[in-house]
Amino acid sequence: MPTVSVIVPTYNRADSLPRTIDSVLAQTHDDLELVVVDDASTDDTRAVVERYDDDRVTYLAHATNRGGSAARNTGIWESDGDYVAFLDSDDEWHPEKLERQVRELESRSDDWVAAYCGVEMVRENGENPVLGWLRRQFGRLSETEGAEGGEELVADVLADDLHTSAGSTLLVERPVAERVDGFDESFDRFQDPEFLVRVLREGRLAYVDDPLVSRYASGNPSADELRDADEHYLRTFSDTVERLEAGGRDVRGAHAYFLAKCYLAEGRFRTGARYLRRARRPRPRQYPGLAASVVTGVGSAVGGR
């Protein structure tokens, strides 16, 4: 089986990092190297990594904080596996994740160059049981869940209809990762879908239909930060966005809906409502998320008094 280079960018996550590293070293596909790229952490990250007595583990450190995209690129350039896989330093893989993905790609023709898989969300502080039930029920209505294909999927990614959690699910052939020149280091947010769009222009994306990644909900950046990052994302693909909208795809409306939820969750209801007026009409599977944003925002507003 081909060697896989697993890239874990990290910054001040010494507490969650062992969970992530353990899940990589427990893979049934054990022909791998794990490259942990420390983006100038100020906690015990180095000591955590150095406790692992396993020659598959490599620790690299940036002298200054350069961001997640730069950390992933350092991992790409300093590794040499046939495939490159990415994992955020607060998430974990199920043991058969890499084996299933590598087997899937090896069984297909050469134009299939990357694979992702299902995810399960873990909310360490729990979730409102009613919202959780609604999320599970409506989530089944996603039209693009498990979508496979090539450049035709770019529209789904840009319109926020296909969520692959690429930062923790994606496995891609090394020549493709190198051909697209890695991650765009101008991105602090949305770097995963931005990278995926460029991968899709190089070849086809396969799906392994099982939740093989546990994603842990962590702190979110401010709505204003996300707004600025979202504008940069749309500008980067402005030509494609214009073409899609000319063909009837409401890309900007989808992004307005995303930002509306962010502002509502902060209790900034006036700004959230302004974005909602510009947003694409929510689909049934999105109702629980919208409700959760409003509930969270009410709590934020009350708590801030």
Results as ranks from 00 to 15, higher is better:
96 E>M: 10
97 K>H: 13
98 L>Y: 06
99 E>N: 11
99 E>M: 04
101 Q>V: 01
102 V>P: 00
102 V>Q: 00
103 R>Y: 10
103 R>T: 15
105 L>G: 02
105 L>W: 08
106 E>P: 03
106 E>G: 10
107 S>T: 07
108 R>I: 01
108 R>M: 12
110 D>L: 07
113 V>W: 10
115 A>S: 15
117 C>D: 12
120 E>C: 06
121 M>E: 13
122 V>E: 13
122 V>T: 08
124 E>D: 11
126 G>S: 11
127 E>L: 11
127 E>S: 14
129 P>C: 10
132 G>T: 08
133 W>V: 09
134 L>F: 15
134 L>V: 04
136 R>C: 05
137 Q>T: 13
137 Q>K: 13
139 G>P: 08
139 G>T: 11
139 G>H: 09
139 G>M: 12
141 L>F: 12
142 S>K: 15
143 E>I: 05
143 E>N: 05
144 T>F: 13
144 T>A: 14
145 E>F: 13
145 E>A: 15
145 E>W: 14
146 G>Q: 10
146 G>N: 04
146 G>R: 09
148 E>I: 03
148 E>V: 07
149 G>P: 03
149 G>N: 02
151 E>A: 15
152 E>L: 02
152 E>Q: 11
153 L>Y: 00
153 L>G: 02
154 V>D: 02
155 A>F: 07
156 D>E: 13
156 D>N: 12
156 D>Y: 09
157 V>T: 05
158 L>M: 08
159 A>C: 13
160 D>L: 14
160 D>K: 10
161 D>E: 14
161 D>Q: 14
161 D>F: 03
163 H>N: 11
163 H>V: 09
164 T>H: 03
165 S>M: 14
167 G>H: 13
167 G>I: 04
169 T>I: 05
169 T>Y: 05
170 L>K: 04
172 V>C: 10
173 E>A: 10
173 E>P: 01
174 R>A: 07
175 P>I: 03
176 V>P: 04
176 V>L: 08
177 A>T: 03
177 A>R: 07
178 E>Y: 04
178 E>N: 07
180 V>R: 07
180 V>K: 08
180 V>P: 01
183 F>P: 04
183 F>T: 00
186 S>C: 06
186 S>A: 14
187 F>D: 08
187 F>L: 08
187 F>Q: 07
187 F>I: 05
188 D>N: 10
188 D>C: 06
190 F>Q: 03
190 F>A: 10
191 Q>K: 06
191 Q>E: 15
192 D>T: 01
194 E>K: 01
195 F>N: 09
196 L>E: 13
200 L>P: 02
200 L>F: 07
202 E>R: 08
202 E>A: 09
203 G>Y: 02
205 L>R: 01
205 L>E: 04
207 Y>T: 01
207 Y>F: 15
207 Y>D: 01
207 Y>S: 01
208 V>G: 01
208 V>D: 04
211 P>H: 03
211 P>M: 03
211 P>G: 05
211 P>F: 05
212 L>F: 06
213 V>I: 11
213 V>Q: 05
